[in-house]
């Protein structure tokens, strides 16, 4: 199961000092932690669902914190955690060129965008499973937004779209329609 690491900020209520904690999280499954943490200690509160048993026990005391981190599901980022995620921008696009360590994509907010955004990204910006999908013409999405609860942080998420494959029926129908179109044109 692929893993992603997310840094969560913990705020000490008295001293206001901040400490970063890195926890392993699963990119496809979202961990469900029951919310009982004292908000005076932990600034970040999250809820999610998962089969993972790592953090299934409820919060016990302030000294054994369980952090709740809102994690938008990659495929549903535009409907992300209610109240926790503020979508600022969503681009659809396609890969224009792939290099050894990076790729260039053309991106649209609206279908009629012009001029269009063209951006080059490190392949590292994608999950391991998504990198194999980067071919010229492949579709992708880029969302930019804020996670907000007690604190707010920016998040940028790029993922490859997994569209249904072409099928014989569709290709055959397209062929018939195009033959009908081109048959009607007389050329010199």
């Amino acid at each position: 199961m692929p893993k992603t690491f997310q840094t969560v900020q913990r705020v000490d209520g008295e001293s206001s000092s901040k400490e970063g904690i890195t926890r392993p999280l699963f990119s496809t499954d979202i961990v469900r932690w029951q919310e009982q943490a004292s908000r005076s200690v932990y600034g970040a509160v999250a809820e999610s669902t998962s089969t993972d048993t790592l953090n299934s026990s409820p919060l016990e005391t302030v000294n054994a914190p369980i952090l709740k981190v809102p994690i938008p599901r990659a495929k549903n980022a535009n409907t992300a955690s209610k109240g926790n995620y503020i979508l600022l921008k969503r681009y659809n696009g396609f890969v224009v060129r792939k290099g050894e360590q990076s790729f260039v994509a053309r991106l649209f907010e609206e279908r009629t965008d012009y001029p269009v955004l063209e951006a080059e990204f490190d392949l590292e910006e994608l999950s391991t499973s998504d990198r194999a999908l980067v071919v010229e013409g492949a579709a992708l999405v880029w969302t930019i937004g804020y996670h907000e609860e007690e604190t707010r942080r920016r998040e940028s998420l790029i993922y490859m779209r997994r569209r249904p494959n072409w099928n014989n029926k569709e290709l055959e129908q397209a062929k018939v329609a195009t033959e009908e179109l081109t048959r009607g044109i007389k050329w010199k």
Binding site: L88, K89, V116, E118, A119, E120, I144, S156
Partner: peptide, 23 residues
């Protein structure tokens, strides 16, 4: 690349190696 939303502009420039409009 420019965006009316400064947060978006900042995020795009931070995430991408380069970002620009074409044409």
């Amino acid at each position: 690349f420019r965006d009316s939303d400064r947060a978006v502009e900042k995020m795009v420039n931070e995430t991408a190696i380069l970002a620009h409009f074409i044409p």
